[in-house]
């Protein structure tokens, strides 16, 4: 019987199959290497073009028509103000909604609608949120165009579903035994959630929030819709002043004919990427540090 496996035809066939196996594995590694190569080239070109322009004048200046005088501070401040508005609105709302859906929501059609709604909002193209912001905040409510307030509101609507989803997962990961134990010593359901579940879920919620905020920080399209593309030579001093944000500054500079702006664009990209990497790094750190297996 074992002859079948000994004859030369079969041996050749097995050799062929093993070669195919090696090719397939190499293909998989190749796919990853290719993707990472693309990333490396992208980063390399941005560093090569931009590092030369990263000096104090660039970091502390605002937009200007002259490439050598233009800086990134105005846009960075706009980004900061916008992010503050986004965080202040989306974090509490997102966490409260997550608590409700995970801990208290009855199972009915209404709640199903809320869930479908949230899952879809997380996947709706960001430019649609821009259209919403334009139609509601600017055209209907008459809020100030180009302002961090409207930008932050728009991005908050976009970020909230992300926070809700990660918040729910974090809350779900808290073992039921902790709830039963707390209920057993006479805590009310609301106390159980706020005293016991929420503190344990917080690292997970924060991780999700940081990731959502990082996404919002890199967002351009919705802010184009609400007019945050104004040429702003002085940094905004409040959330109602016209302002730009970092990604928008990159977009605006990328359109300039003057060669000097290539350096500015790349330098601004480096600044933005540093912030994003820091945020993602923080998220990963938090996740690893507090990752608990019950």
């Amino acid at each position: 019987m074992s002859n079948t496996w000994k004859n030369p035809d079969m041996a050749r066939r097995i050799a062929r199959r093993n070669a195919a196996e090696r090719r397939f594995k190499a293909l998989g590694l190749g796919a990853i290497v290719l993707s990472l190569l693309f990333l490396a080239v992208l980063l390399f070109i941005m560093l090569k073009n931009g590092l030369g322009g990263l000096d104090w004048a660039f970091l502390s200046g605002s937009d200007a028509t002259d490439a050598s005088a233009a800086g990134v501070w105005g846009a960075a401040k706009g980004s900061f103000l916008t992010m503050v508005v986004t965080l202040v609105l989306s974090f509490p709302m997102g966490v409260l909604a997550a608590i409700y859906l995970e801990e208290f929501a009855p199972r009915n059609r209404w709640v199903d609608w809320v869930e479908v709604s949230i899952n879809n909002l997380a996947a709706v193209p960001s430019i649609i949120f821009g259209l919403l912001g334009l139609a509601v905040f600017i055209n209907t409510l008459g809020m100030a165009r180009s302002s961090p307030l409207v930008g932050g509101l728009t991005l908050a609507l976009m970020t909230m579903p992300v926070i809700v989803i990660s918040g729910r997962n974090a809350i779900k990961a808290v073992p039921p035994s902790i709830r039963t134990a707390a209920l057993g010593v006479g805590a009310s359901p609301v106390q159980v959630v706020f005293h016991h579940v929420l503190p344990l879920a917080l690292p997970g919620i924060l991780t999700g929030t940081i990731i959502g905020m990082a996404r919002a920080l890199g967002e351009t399209a919705p802010l184009l819709m609400i007019g945050m593309r104004a040429f702003v030579a002085t940094p905004a001093s409040g959330i109602n002043d016209p302002s730009s944000v970092l990604p928008m500054q990159i977009f605006l500079w990328s359109d300039e004919i003057d060669r000097g702006f290539v350096q500015n664009t790349s330098a601004a990209i480096i600044v933005l990427l540093v912030f994003l990497l820091a945020m993602n790094g923080l998220a990963i750190y938090l996740r690893n540090k507090f990752e608990t297996r019950w």
């Binding site: 074992s2 496996w5 079969m10 097995i14 199959r17 093993n18």
Partner: peptide, 9 residues
């Protein structure tokens, strides 16, 4: 011994 042939046997 190839595991492929072995596992067939």
């Amino acid at each position: 011994m190839d595991p492929v042939a072995l596992r067939a046997r």
